[in-house]
Amino acid sequence: MQTVIQLDQLCKRYGNTTAVDQITMQVNKGEIFGIVGPNGAGKTTLIEMLEGLRLPDSGSATVLGLDIRKHAMEIKQRIGVLLQATSMPEKAKVREVLQMFASLYHKSTDPKEISAFLGLEDKQNAFIKSLSGGWKQRVSLALALINDPDILFLDEPSMGLDPNARKEMWDMIHRLKKDGRTIVVTTHYMEEAEYLCDRIAVISHGKLVALDTPQKLISMLGGTKRISFRNAGDTGKESFAGLPYVVDVEWETDTVKLHSSQIDETLQALFRLAAEEGWMVSGLRLEDASMNDVFTEMTASGKGSEG
């Protein structure tokens, strides 16, 4: 498999804090690569170094075989970056923005072609100001694609979008992957990471704490499942924690979620407990562990397994 981004012991410090701490990893050609982590974990700094906006303090990185220290301009020619939808002049028309940015690159695709791909043909003469959030995001994506980039960086691609627009954005990202582009996504939504990404890097306190496919990351949690039901309020958290095979209890005022390594055994014990205490188990749901659990588990203060 061809490597398009290669990081080797990459570090960036701000004063006493190490924003990016010795990260080594590769991104392969044609994959959707996710970077997740809590706010302030160093995702943004990491991405900005790869986009040629910041210089690392130590370590090295290449993007498309180009050194990020020496060839920032060449890298910028060949990458596309999706920025927040606000980052376009409000008083410009869609056509004007597309044409202007197309002229900044050696290689650019015809703005008309991109507009057709993204369904923007009818909006060419619309002012940016007049567009809804979803449409602005499309123009923003059009700008990220204007130079027919080899690598596309998407920062929070569905932030602030309604569920329909989010679904459309995800579909478009999948279509872009089919064209053979490499896509690097940072996101806060674990649902998005799980749905979109081929591989996910989990960053916490500047360090790479895990890197694998979403399925492998989830199975690393030990294959536990979730039993959730309405919190009747009669039984204490300790009683649930004492049930067989329960490894963790998520306790909220209206729901209880038991993490179980043997779901059948735990369920039977749960029903017995309810019968003894004279209440009904209601609102019962069984769930697999998800990327949300991976995120909580691996980025909780300082915890996390190398891998």
Binding site: V81, L83, P89, Y105
Partner: peptide
């Protein structure tokens, strides 16, 4: 205005 809305950032990620 251009800085706070991110327009300057858009120029910075482009090769201009």
């Amino acid at each position: 205005t251009q800085r706070e809305s991110g327009i300057l950032r858009r120029y910075r990620v482009s090769p201009i």
